[in-house]
Amino acid sequence: MKNPYLPELATITKIIEETPNIKSFQVVFNDHEKMKTFKFEPGQVGQLSVFGVGESTFVINSPPTRMEYLQFSVMKVGEVTTALHELHEGDQIGVRAPLGNWFPYEEMKGKNILFIGGGIGLAPLRTLILFMLDNRKDYEDITIIYGARTPPDLCYKDDLKEWESRPDVNLILTVDNEYPGWDKRTGFVPTVLNEVAPKPDNTIAITCGPPIMIKFVLQNLVKLNFKDDQIITTLEKRMKCGIGICGRCNIGSKYVCKDGPVFSLAQLKDLPPDL
């Protein structure tokens, strides 16, 4: 019987400082064979171990189409994330992955895709964006609305630059307030969503960000006539086991770690409001 609690040893090959409190870690399994055979789907998560400190859950934000490494982005907020931030390239961590479900990208084929992200909430969207760009012909228009508190708080600045330059991606960036040197939009993401007012026809909207942002984005999407099954979000909860047992990440009978983290608004409406 496989031990689901046993992490795979991995080495940090690169650390990218995304923002003042977010770092991205590129890791490869020490076992090269495992790296070659590792399979996951966009949206799935992993548990990262700092041995002796603990585990924490992060989405794999590199796409399965680019398997040189797995990338995780970590905001420094608690015990494990602080310990992760103290690590260096070449250090050992543990990885339990992949866990959870994924974005229904097959069902999205032939559709317009609207991504709405806030802060580090771009991480789970990034894996799907890159996956779709690597399979660009399968999808129609791709629009990305992304915001953060200030310009330095925007994640994946290299990606943003690339997406901005691509003619087949419509990237709309915003920060909360005016900022020296910022000449793009200002305002909260849900407000910018209203301004952009994307059409719901043949479109799937995917959103992730802080709980309060998600709440208003969902409301605004409904107002823009998006149907519940056209709206997808990916949730974050405190998790421990990652296999739907330990009991803390449930919303009703669904466990975010196993049955999620990806839910359509239609699915969420069937669950108690414990977000």
Partner: peptide, 10 residues
């Protein structure tokens, strides 16, 4: 009741 915690002790 079967809920649990996982913690590292160093």
């Amino acid at each position: 009741c079967y809920c649990f915690n996982i913690t590292d002790e160093n």
